[in-house]
Amino acid sequence: APAVLAQSPIVVKMQTSWPASDIWMDFAREYTTRVEEMSAGRLKIDLLPAGAVVGAFQVMDACNDGVLDAAHTVPVYWYGKHKAASFFGTGPVWGGSATTMLGWFYQGGGADLYRELTQDILGLNVYGFMGFPMYAQPFGWFKKEVSTVEDLQGFKYRTVGLAADLLQAMGMSVAQLPGGEIVPAMERGVIDAFEFNNPSSDSRFGAQDVAKNYYLSSYHQASESFEFLFNKDFFDDLDPDLQAILKYGVEAASTSNTASAMDNYSADLEKLQTEHGVTVHRTSKEILDAQLKAWDQLIADLEQDEFMKRIMDSQRAWVERVTYYELMNAPDYALAYEHYFPGKLKL
């Protein structure tokens, strides 16, 4: 509204793609408090949950139009505009983790390709930054046990982005829904199995009330990060120091989000098992193999597109070098864990 006082802080209207109760609202708040403190109150972020202004999947349109100044989301939520969006988080798993791929974004050429996609190809009026390399996402929640590819046939399953293409290729019928709509959709019979992201988010929206088998370890979304979107005009109009605070605040929140995720995800996984009678499984090798084969097929299809091929070439070059180092260098953590906490791990 009009009549803004000269001294008052610049209010940033930021909406997330998460329901108000999701732990990711807390993660987003870790970002906004950092920004507000660093700017000494010159910036104030009005943080809103999904649906407050627009739906979870519409934040990109809203940022582009300036209906929102900023958004806290993931790129797969706008992959209806271009499938390449999914490569910035939910793409083929070459062997690297989300940390590896966040490294690719900042040091391996990802950010340039992202800018080319959003600004040149789609003509979107936004800037985007990536932060918080997420833990690999569980294969998700099923009413009955699933151990073979045959068991998956005919399921109506919720996931997003290229993961949806992937599981469709494996014989599932896939619906993409925002997190807040998963349990209602399950009750309505729109879907009969789903994944969202992690033990904390999943349990906060009540996954354990509608399914009891939780499958960890999967290649469908093993390297995602948050996307922080800003309307370009809004961002350009800020003083350079405030721009820097918004930009580097993403890096700061990335570390604090990682610590919070460690603490909460692990505690909530324990709670799901002990308090809610959820059975935690590891996804079978047969299904994981089938996932990689399905990725192969998908990669071949997507490489038909020149731009998407360029992204994948860039990612492969990065992972081939970086992950070789990561894996060759990494000690066997499971061995040490087994040594100090014998008999717990069931890999």
């Binding site: 999947f57 939520y77 271009h82 190809i121 293409d165 469709q168 829904l177």
Partner: peptide
């Protein structure tokens, strides 16, 4: 809004079927 959507031949996000919108 619609012409922008034509510009990138937007498809529905709800399923991987790629239904144009």
């Amino acid at each position: 809004y619609a012409s922008r959507s034509w510009g990138y031949a937007e498809v529905s996000i709800n399923s991987p079927a790629g239904i144009p919108i």
